[in-house]
Nucleic acid binder design. Structure first.
Lengths: 90, 90
DNA sequence: GACAAAGTTTCCAATATTTGAAACATTATA
DNA sequence: TATAATGTTTCAAATATTGGAAACTTTGTC
């Protein structure tokens, strides 16, 4: 699961998905990368159980799965912030 | 930070450090890998602000930094468990 | 001072991950 | 049916990460 979270663009996707559902082509456009790469990144997030899909026609909508993922994110943010503060002190 | 968490052996180290402080040579022995690799993994955890060090003599003791790290862990565990449950249903 | 003990750093080989283009699959529409 | 739109998979090349041995630092001990 942490491996799924270990790439900047996948964090970017999760932040997008916090707002609302997005389909692959939209996220690809937002990130400025080809849809093949987008699809692969999203499938890693899905494998980790962090997002889920909902197919409508040719579209595949991705959305956040667990509410815990959001807790996880805010918790992680806390660690990062306190870490940054410490580094500034040095 | 998630990059720091994205290697099994570093998760193993964090779980060890949940109990108590350990020095590099002890963790190297526990994991069965050379101390050079151990040192490198631990420094990644330190860079991420997940652990901190306390030097005494030639020893370097590593310990968990933030209490939030533990929350993060239990939260992550929740995601993993619910994920596994879903997969079993299929 | 010489030596040992504990860690870190440096090097390069071995692995793993990511990337993008192209081929492929599926569904909708003219 | 032919074509377009959306995603996924496959492949090889490009990048990044990891692993281990050896050199090096620092501190403690004889």
């Amino acid at each position: 699961m942490f491996k799924a979270l270990s790439h900047p663009i996948r964090i970017f996707f999760l932040e997008k998905l916090k707002e609302k559902s997005w389909c692959v082509c939209q996220l690809a456009a937002e990130a400025g990368i080809p849809k093949s790469a987008t699809s692969k990144h999203l499938s890693q997030l899905k494998e980790a159980g962090l997002v889920e899909i909902h197919k409508t026609g040719t579209r595949v909508e991705y959305s956040i799965t667990a509410p815990c993922v959001l807790k996880l994110a805010s918790c992680a943010e806390g660690v990062v912030l306190s870490n940054r503060k410490k580094q500034l002190e040095l």
